[in-house]
Design a protein around this nucleic acid. Sequence first.
RNA 1: UGAGUAAAACAGACAGUCGCGGGGAAAACAGUUUUUGUUUUCCAUGAGGAAAGUCCGGGCUUCACAGAGCAAGGGUGCCGGUUAACGACCGGUGGAGGCAACUCUAAGGAUAGUGCAACAGAAAAGAACCGCCGGAUGUUUCGCAUUCGGUAAGGAUGAAAAGGCGAGGUAAGAGCUCACCGGCAAUCCGGAGACGGAUUGGCCGUGUAAACCCCACCCGAAGCAACACAAGACUGCACGAUAGCUUGCUCGGCUGUGCGAAUUGUGGCUUGAGGUAAUCAGCAAUGGUUAUCCUAGAUAGAUGGCUGUCGAAUACAGAACCCGGCUUACAGUUUUGCUCAUUCA
RNA 2: GGAGAAGUACUCAAGUUGGCCGAAGAGGCGCCCCUGCUAAGGGCGUAGGGCGGGUAACCGUCGCGAGGGUUCAAAUCCCUCCUUCUCCG
Length: 118
Amino acid sequence: MRCEGKRLVTSLTENYEFQRVYKKGQSYPGRYAVLYYLKTNRATVRMGITATKKIGKACVRNRARRLIYENMRLVMPAMKPGCDVVVVARNAIVGSDFFALGKELKKLLQKAEAFSDE
RNA sequence: UGAGUAAAACAGACAGUCGCGGGGAAAACAGUUUUUGUUUUCCAUGAGGAAAGUCCGGGCUUCACAGAGCAAGGGUGCCGGUUAACGACCGGUGGAGGCAACUCUAAGGAUAGUGCAACAGAAAAGAACCGCCGGAUGUUUCGCAUUCGGUAAGGAUGAAAAGGCGAGGUAAGAGCUCACCGGCAAUCCGGAGACGGAUUGGCCGUGUAAACCCCACCCGAAGCAACACAAGACUGCACGAUAGCUUGCUCGGCUGUGCGAAUUGUGGCUUGAGGUAAUCAGCAAUGGUUAUCCUAGAUAGAUGGCUGUCGAAUACAGAACCCGGCUUACAGUUUUGCUCAUUCA
RNA sequence: GGAGAAGUACUCAAGUUGGCCGAAGAGGCGCCCCUGCUAAGGGCGUAGGGCGGGUAACCGUCGCGAGGGUUCAAAUCCCUCCUUCUCCG
């Protein structure tokens, strides 16, 4: 298993943090990716992205990570503060469309009730 | 024009907008002797031809200097050159393929020695099983049997059978003799050499060295997760002759009141056998000189998204100390040299 | 990033001085014994992959991760690639 975080204002880095989200958080599977969501007492949203070696070579993993990162970045300001999010890429993400992935991530986040009320 | 062959270049571009890495500048705040940290704004900049596989060769670092000797082990293998070095590259020689351009080639030694060659076959290395021929003996219906010789032309086996093929020759045969071809040796000529050519001689015991080996040349070991400096939880070990370190052994030498060590930070970390252009030397690889340029340096790991235009933008694919090669993956576009075929002049 | 090891029937595997090797052995499968029945245990037997040919017995050919090479002959020797696993802070 290879885990890769993402440089964000606040991002998950250490392996134990990922493990905590996997174990204690809720999971929401999708076609392109799996979302793990865990509420915390912090005032910020923290995110981590995982792309295992299963998905492909280094270049493919980079591509997957960037697509997820870009989508999450656009969605982030609408989210409730105080949670840890881990997105795990799945095989189907190879060659997927940017907008399709964005739609799915939004749906998963809605399921997790991560968005703040307007 | 078509087919082929060799080499080289590119690897989407431009504009707008949101976002990321490190760098520089300015401002504000915290703190303050300098310094440093955070935030905001602006500026220029930011993956490859293979960044890959890690198959070779170096630089660099540590092992005190990277040293001495011996042994073992490993590598390379036609010749000459290039290079920091190489198993790479360039030019040739021999061999193989192609009408040709051109391509491929681990290509030293089998009379230095040892081993192996299953099955089949008389025999797998100094070969008489059958056959052929001659002599003797027996039987004597001219043949057969036994025995002693000669013989590698023929036979069956096998991947491979004792130079090939033809003629002469002979009891039958045989490089026994001769012509041509192959291979070997000597001499002469050409070449820097591998080697090529000519003449003469003699008539020549298979294959395997990517089996051991012989000959010639080369190699100390590990690797940036190396290592250096600073801090150092834990208290684990040693405390004056042992311990540890350098592939093995011998020598030589080092460490020391500290050693080991989770972990953290900084350095190593990008100016280099560098690129570009011109010119000179060389067939070329490459080298010299001059001018000019500075072009990622992250540390969970930065290049992405959207919109528009171009006829179409789509392959393989992401730096992690740095270079020189090799190998492997790869959509498409462009240019140049050469060869063959066809048509026209 | 670097260093190393392995790959053979469905599974675990033996076999590398090159030769009767498609391949020992075990699990497996079938039958029998044991038991009221099953499991376990014991005994006996058996197929071993693909393609082609043959009524069948059987024969030919390709297969030891993949592709080349050396050799008369390669699971074994040499080269290149693929996959899996381990170690180094």
